[in-house]
Structure formats: C-alpha cells, structure tokens
Amino acid sequence: MPETLTRHLGQDAPTPRSLGFAMPAEWAPHAATWTSWPFDDELWVGHLEGVRREFAELVRTIARFEPVHLLVRDQEAEQDARTRLQGVSGVTFHRVPLDDVWFRDNGPLFVVRGQDVSFVNWEFNSWGQKFEWLLDTQAPEAVARFLEVAHWDQSVVMEGGSLELNGQGVALTTRQCLKSEFRNPGLDESDLEGILRDYLGIEKLLWLDAGLEGDHTDGHIDTITRFVDERTIVTCVCEDASDANFATMNDNLARLRAFTDAQGRPFEIVTLPLPANRLELEGKRLPPTYANFYIGNGFVVVPMYGDPNDARALEVLRPLFPGREVIGLSSRELITGGGSFHCVTQQQPAGRIWKGEDL
C-alpha cells in the first residue's frame, strides 16, 4: 500500500492538539469496536476453551449494536473465531501477528477533530516489560493500513487502560501505573501531563495513587474508576476491612470527592462494590471488578463472575446509562488473564478517516 495512504506523523510534526484533535469520551458515537481473538492454551493456563466461549458471547453482543473488527493471530485462531461466530454479521477479520489479546493497551488511541478521525500509536511494552510485546506494539500499524489513516507515532509508553477521559479535557490515572520504573523512567508527572495534553487533548490530569491488588498492569484506572458522563464518576469500594483493597479504595474515594472538573466544579461520585469473593489462579490473586465495563452504541457490557455482588453491580450501573442497554456477561474465565471487557476492546469513533490533507 502506498505510504501516502498510511502517513506517519512523528514527534517533529504538529501535535494533535495544535491541529484541533483530542480523544473523545468512550460514550461518543462509534464507527466500530476493535478487539483480538484469544489464542494459546498455555498462555491462558488451561482456560482457553472457556475464554473463547465468553469472548464469542462478547463479540456477538457488541455486533448487535455496531461493527466489530477482529484481529486473529493465525489460521487456527481465525478458524475458531469464524466457527464460533457463524451467523454473526458485521464482523471483519484481520490476520495480524499478536503476543496477546489486550487491545485496549496495545492498540491505537483514537483522536477526533469535528468529523475527522485519526489516532496516536504509542509504544507498548507489556506493562513494564512483564511479558512478550514485540508483536503487540506493531498492531496499530495494521489498523492504520486497513483504515488508510494519517496518524502520529509517539515513542512514549502509554496504555489505553491507564487513562479514563470525560471528553471535556479531564482524565483520571494512577501514579502506580504511569510512574512505574519500567515504562517511562525519564519522565516526571509534569512531562507526562504535557505529552497527554499535546497528543490526546487532556487539559487536566487527575492522579489517584494505586489500583487493585493482583493487577499486573500496575493499577490501571479502568479496573477501579470510570467516567459515565462528563460530571459523574463511578468508583470501586471494598466492603471487607481485612482486604488489602479496602484502604486503597477508601483513599481513592476521598481523593475523588476532592477533585474538580475543568470549570472547578466537584464531580458526582457513585460507589460500585467489588466482587465479594476472592479469586486466585495458581496461588496468585486475580483482580475481578465490575468497573471494567465497555460502553458502545446503545449498550454497556459489564463483566459478571458468578459472585453475590453481580446483581448489585448491575443495579448500580443501569441508572447511570439512560438510553443504553446494560448487559451482564460472564467473565469468569476471561479474568484468569488479568482483565475483562474494557481491557480487550478499543473503540473507533464515528467520522471521516483523516488523510492528513491539511498538513
């Protein structure tokens, strides 16, 4: 494909912010959802079959509301996905070599300017060099080739799950993640805030300290605290005082109640219980959470774990999304990999693919 159709804009080019681009909120209209099909039973510690059953139900559900672009690692993964998704319309398959399935983090982060849609291709290093990543960090270029989009290449390590945006210039993150020593050791908070301002249009970055115990992403914000609209934040609370998450979640709650938006107004804070039951895999704690929901066109999919708090979580979330169908789907197998529905999805905003014509 000619280079002009996938024009790369490096760090010396005008920034997205200088050209009027910014990352929209997740609830803004989507053109599609991008995700990756699970593979390798060893990677899933023997849970691949169950993970694929849950994943098929997730893709079927999303495809009821919007198109799905599905990355498949190889022939086996593609054949398995096609078999399980037989009869599901609106799914486009892309053969792309991958190390894993967490496309929220290794995928591109889309930015918009009016009707123009582009993205930023950040570096991905598997949450601080914990696992293999050399294939995953190349996946955004496959998206670029398919969309034929002019886009920015940024050398800073940044993961979609580490940022939660309200679409009005405010974002949430955690120090545990963005300041971990194996991501961007030469950058301080001010540096990171400047980069996120220039490349995603984030004018005000609000810092929590830490996330869930057992989260190998080092405290991704999308497992604990989410915007549900411009002024409303839902955040996890732990009801067991003996649990290591109890103090962390209480500290987050106190900080959130003191935060203000871009106009200096306090947010409305809604609390969301964590699952009551502790889940482990090979003696290590897993981070199940209802906050890892995914918002799409007319729907929200919420992870369920066969837990006593499943129904309570849906009761909390349903009133927060008027006009959207809030759907609970099983994630008991998927969580064995350390994440859930938000972690495996990436939204492509609605609009016209930008070719860089005005540069």
Rank of each mutant, 00 (worst) to 15 (best):
F182N: 14
A313M: 10
A63Y: 01
T223S: 11
P14G: 06
F259N: 10
L274T: 05
L58W: 09
V156E: 02
P67C: 00
D209R: 12
P97G: 03
D222Q: 10
A144Q: 08
Q129A: 03
D12E: 13
G211Q: 09
F103H: 12
D251L: 12
R73T: 02
W102A: 04
R53T: 09
G264Y: 10
A31V: 00
R175E: 15
L135M: 13
P67A: 01
E357M: 09
R84E: 07
D251R: 13
V143Y: 07
L253S: 08
Q11N: 10
Q154H: 15
D307C: 05
A313W: 07
L320W: 08
Y294F: 14
V51C: 06
V326R: 05
P275R: 02
L281Y: 07
E123H: 12
G90L: 02
G10Q: 11
W37M: 00
A28R: 13
E333W: 03
Q348H: 06
D218F: 07
T235P: 11
P319S: 07
G351V: 03
F321Q: 11
L205D: 02
E189M: 12
R197H: 11
I269R: 04
Q347V: 04
V156M: 15
R95N: 09
A22W: 13
E193Y: 01
R64N: 09
P273G: 04
I233Q: 06
C343Q: 05
E164H: 04
F110H: 13
R352G: 01
F119P: 13
F146V: 02
R352Y: 00
L317R: 09
P275K: 08
D209W: 01
T173W: 06
R95W: 01
V45C: 03
Q138R: 15
T271Y: 04
V237K: 03
E49L: 02
P97T: 06
H94F: 13
A313G: 15
H8M: 06
I295C: 10
P303Y: 06
R332V: 14
E189N: 03
D191R: 09
F341L: 01
F341A: 02
I224N: 11
Q86I: 00
K284D: 12
V149D: 05
D198R: 06
W34F: 14
N166A: 06
E42K: 14
R278A: 07
R113L: 06
A171T: 04
T235A: 14
K204W: 03
A144D: 07
F21K: 07
G211Y: 10
D243N: 15
S36C: 14
P273H: 09
E132R: 15
T345L: 05
E148T: 02
S162C: 12
E280C: 01
I221A: 07
D243P: 11
L334V: 13
F227L: 10
R312S: 11
V117I: 04
L205H: 08
G211S: 04
N121I: 00
W354C: 02
D80E: 12
T137M: 10
N309T: 08
A77Q: 02
S162G: 14
E282S: 07
A247R: 14
T336M: 07
